[in-house]
Amino acid sequence: MSGPPTAEAAVPAAAPLVPALATAWPVGTRPRVTRGWEPPASAYGPGHRGVDLATAAGAPVRAVAAGRVSFAGRVAGRGVVSVALAGTALRTTYEPVTGTVRAGDEVAAGDRVGTVEATGGHCVTPCLHWGLLSGETYLDPLSLLPPWLRSTGPSRLLPLTEPPPGRGTGHLR
Rank of each mutant, 00 (worst) to 15 (best):
A66D: 05
G87S: 10
S82V: 12
V61H: 01
P46V: 06
A57K: 04
R49Y: 02
T34Y: 10
W37N: 05
H48G: 07
A56H: 08
S70T: 08
V51G: 11
L53N: 02
G73T: 06
L53D: 00
A86P: 11
R62L: 13
G77Q: 06
E38D: 12
V81R: 09
R78W: 03
A54L: 07
S42E: 12
T34K: 09
G73V: 09
L53W: 04
A65M: 04
R78Q: 09
V80A: 02
G58I: 05
A84G: 14
G79M: 12
A54G: 01
P40S: 00
P60H: 07
R49N: 06
P39T: 03
A72C: 14
P60C: 10
G47E: 04
V61I: 01
V75F: 12
G50N: 02
A57E: 00
A41Y: 09
F71K: 04
A66W: 07
G58C: 07
A89C: 14
R62T: 10
L90T: 10
V61M: 00
V51K: 05
T55P: 02
G50H: 01
V33D: 12
S82Y: 14
G67S: 02
R68K: 13
L90I: 09
V83D: 00
P39F: 06
D52C: 03
G58L: 04
G50Y: 02
V81Y: 01
A86D: 15
A57G: 08
T55Q: 00
Y44G: 15
